[in-house]
């Protein structure tokens, strides 16, 4: 959690390897590997996933085609069997239940013409398909109405397991009514200034970010 401009999205993008960010010092260790030495696609195949705050529209590329290619690249990487289009379609249908998406979305171009809520649900669907070890969800709750928020949150809860980790980036405590965090880290001025359990989020909501901002300087 953290106020505007605290570096939450920067952190997400740096973890994913966005080309406009240059890391000038430090390292990011993930299961013993320095992520900063890996290309974005290599990071993804190692099990890092970022759900975008503003998911990108890809005209002319169908959701199912895109997801099958991504899924099969991962399978190839971990030495498992790839799925043909029919097999994948069954797999996708199963996964889509997690975010209550109908198969009508499979044929449509990736995110093109999707509503804000549909885009965010599509991000969680991708997470469900790719089963990352670490998922960074960048303000997944922004721009969602209450129903979409519930669906997305339930999706995340379904995917949560002892075998994976989720970094949920948010401004508001609202999302945490639906998703109970194990830890809360507060980012301000590019640093983690406070840490605690789920009760910290509630305290933040009451006292506001000014309460922790002082600690950043």
């Amino acid at each position: 959690m953290g106020p505007n401009g605290s570096g939450k999205s920067t952190l997400s993008k740096v973890l994913a390897g966005h080309p406009t960010y240059e890391v000038i010092s430090g390292e990011v260790l993930f299961e013993g590997k320095n992520l900063l030495e890996l290309e974005p696609d290599e990071r993804a195949r190692e099990g890092v996933f970022m759900a975008f705050q503003y998911p990108v529209e890809i005209p002319g590329v169908s959701n199912s085609q895109f997801l099958r290619l991504a899924y099969n690249e991962k399978m190839k990487h971990i030495g498992e069997e790839e799925l043909d289009p029919l097999e994948f379609n069954d797999y996708l249908k199963e996964k889509a239940k997690v975010v209550e998406m109908s198969s009508e979305f499979f044929k449509r171009s990736v995110n093109e013409g999707f509503s804000g809520g549909e885009k965010k649900r599509n991000e969680i669907l991708q997470m469900a398909v790719l089963q990352p070890k670490l998922a960074v969800l960048d303000e997944t709750d922004s721009g969602l109405d209450i129903d979409a928020l519930r669906i997305v949150a339930e999706g995340v809860n379904t995917l949560r397991s002892p075998d994976n980790a989720i970094i949920l980036v948010t401004h508001y405590q609202r999302l945490l009514n639906y998703i109970q965090p194990d830890f809360v880290h507060v980012l301000a001025g590019g640093k983690i200034v406070k840490e605690g359990g789920k009760e910290l989020a509630v305290e933040l909501e009451e006292k506001g970010y000014d309460w922790v901002k002082g600690a950043a300087v």
């Binding site: 994913a16 390897g17 966005h18 080309p19 290309e39 974005p40 696609d41 990071r43 993804a44 195949r45 996933f49 970022m50 975008f52 998911p55 990108v56 529209e57 890809i58 005209p59 002319g60 590329v61 085609q65 895109f66 997801l67 290619l69 991504a70 690249e73 991962k74 990487h77 171009s109 991708q126 790719l130």
Partner: peptide, 26 residues
Amino acid sequence: ELFYLLTRGLPEVLAKNLLTYGFAEE
């Protein structure tokens, strides 16, 4: 668009191919 596809684990050549296909698909 390219970055988005890369973050889903598509190798760069494949990602570029797919975007190019998307351009021509219409």
